[in-house]
Amino acid sequence: TSSHKLRLYERDDYRGLMSELTDDCACVPELFRLPEIYSLHVLEGCWVLYEMPNYRGRQYLLRPGDYRRYHDWGGADAKVGSLRRVTDL
């Protein structure tokens, strides 16, 4: 099985509160109590970021690497509604 891990930060450049995720999350704002995510670091696996909860809205593919600001993943703003692991490519 492949492993997945990413870290979410409330501010750009990996500042502020950090939360780690290793499984799908249908509602990021509810789980982490963060209305917006300004940076993230994908440590393992690929993920799909959705701008709205319950895997809706615009989708962004996140490969392992650094995303210091939301425009690094192509986002128009810092809204992160849900995240899902990519298990098949």
Rank of each mutant, 00 (worst) to 15 (best):
T1G: 09
T1D: 07
T1I: 15
T1E: 09
T1Q: 13
T1R: 09
S2Y: 11
S2M: 14
S2F: 11
S3F: 12
S3H: 07
S3W: 06
S3M: 07
H4K: 01
H4F: 15
H4I: 05
H4T: 05
K5L: 10
K5E: 01
K5F: 09
L6A: 03
L6W: 03
L6V: 12
L6Y: 00
R7F: 09
L8H: 03
L8D: 02
L8P: 02
L8C: 06
L8R: 01
Y9P: 00
Y9H: 04
Y9E: 02
R11Y: 10
R11M: 14
R11F: 14
R11K: 15
R11E: 14
R11P: 04
D12M: 12
D12Q: 12
D12S: 13
D13H: 13
D13Y: 10
Y14E: 04
Y14G: 08
Y14K: 07
Y14S: 03
Y14Q: 06
Y14A: 05
R15S: 12
R15H: 11
R15M: 10
R15K: 15
R15I: 04
R15Q: 13
R15C: 11
G16N: 06
G16S: 04
G16W: 05
G16Q: 03
G16E: 06
L17E: 14
L17V: 11
L17A: 14
M18N: 12
M18F: 15
S19V: 14
S19Q: 11
S19R: 13
S19F: 14
S19C: 08
E20C: 02
E20H: 01
E20D: 05
E20L: 04
L21C: 05
L21D: 12
L21V: 12
T22W: 05
T22Y: 12
T22D: 08
T22G: 13
T22C: 11
T22V: 12
T22A: 13
T22H: 07
D23T: 13
D23C: 10
D23K: 11
D24N: 04
C25F: 01
C25E: 03
C25T: 05
C25H: 04
A26G: 07
A26R: 12
A26F: 03
A26Q: 10
C27L: 06
C27V: 09
V28N: 06
V28K: 05
V28L: 10
P29F: 15
P29K: 14
P29M: 12
P29V: 11
P29Y: 12
P29L: 11
E30C: 08
E30F: 05
E30W: 06
E30G: 11
L31S: 11
L31A: 11
L31I: 10
L31M: 11
L31W: 14
F32S: 15
F32D: 05
F32C: 11
F32Y: 15
F32P: 12
R33T: 14
R33H: 15
R33L: 13
L34C: 13
L34Y: 10
L34W: 09
L34M: 15
L34T: 09
E36Y: 14
E36W: 08
I37K: 15
I37L: 11
I37R: 11
I37A: 12
I37C: 15
Y38N: 09
Y38P: 15
Y38F: 15
Y38H: 11
S39N: 00
S39D: 01
L40D: 01
L40W: 01
L40G: 04
L40E: 00
H41M: 09
H41P: 02
H41C: 14
H41S: 10
H41Q: 10
H41W: 07
V42Y: 05
V42K: 00
V42G: 03
V42S: 04
L43T: 04
L43A: 05
E44S: 14
E44K: 15
E44F: 03
E44D: 06
E44A: 13
G45D: 05
C46F: 10
C46D: 03
C46T: 13
C46H: 10
C46E: 14
C46I: 15
W47Q: 00
W47A: 01
W47T: 05
W47R: 04
V48P: 02
V48N: 06
L49R: 02
L49Q: 00
L49E: 05
L49H: 03
Y50T: 00
Y50L: 03
E51V: 05
M52I: 00
M52F: 14
M52S: 10
M52K: 15
P53L: 01
P53A: 10
P53N: 05
P53E: 09
N54H: 09
N54V: 06
N54W: 07
Y55S: 02
Y55K: 01
Y55R: 02
R56H: 12
R56W: 02
R56Q: 13
R56F: 15
R56D: 13
G57R: 02
G57H: 07
G57K: 06
G57V: 02
R58Y: 08
R58V: 04
R58N: 07
Q59L: 02
Q59I: 02
Q59A: 07
Y60H: 07
Y60E: 08
Y60M: 08
Y60Q: 04
Y60A: 05
L61N: 12
L61T: 14
L61D: 15
L61F: 13
L62C: 04
L62G: 07
L62I: 07
L62K: 01
L62N: 04
L62Q: 03
L62V: 13
L62D: 00
R63Q: 12
R63K: 11
R63P: 08
R63Y: 14
P64T: 03
P64S: 04
P64Y: 02
P64K: 09
G65C: 05
G65N: 01
G65K: 07
G65D: 01
G65H: 04
G65I: 04
D66S: 14
D66M: 10
Y67K: 07
Y67H: 07
Y67I: 03
Y67D: 00
Y67A: 05
R68H: 05
R68W: 07
R68Y: 10
R69Y: 14
R69F: 09
R69M: 06
Y70N: 13
Y70I: 10
Y70L: 06
H71F: 11
H71Q: 13
H71I: 14
H71C: 13
D72M: 05
D72L: 07
D72N: 07
D72G: 06
W73G: 07
W73M: 07
G74I: 06
G74F: 02
G74E: 05
G74A: 08
G75R: 03
G75A: 15
G75E: 01
G75N: 04
G75C: 03
A76G: 10
A76W: 06
A76M: 15
A76S: 13
A76K: 09
A76D: 08
A76L: 14
D77N: 12
A78Q: 05
A78M: 11
A78C: 08
A78P: 13
K79C: 08
K79L: 11
K79M: 12
K79A: 08
V80L: 07
V80G: 03
V80F: 06
V80I: 13
V80E: 02
G81C: 00
G81W: 02
S82W: 01
S82V: 04
S82G: 02
L83M: 07
L83F: 10
L83Q: 05
L83G: 03
L83P: 02
R84N: 00
R84D: 00
R84F: 03
R84Y: 03
R85I: 07
R85K: 14
R85D: 11
R85Y: 04
R85T: 07
R85H: 02
V86K: 09
V86Q: 12
V86E: 06
V86C: 10
V86M: 10
T87V: 09
T87G: 13
T87H: 10
D88T: 06
D88G: 10
L89M: 14
L89V: 13
L89H: 15
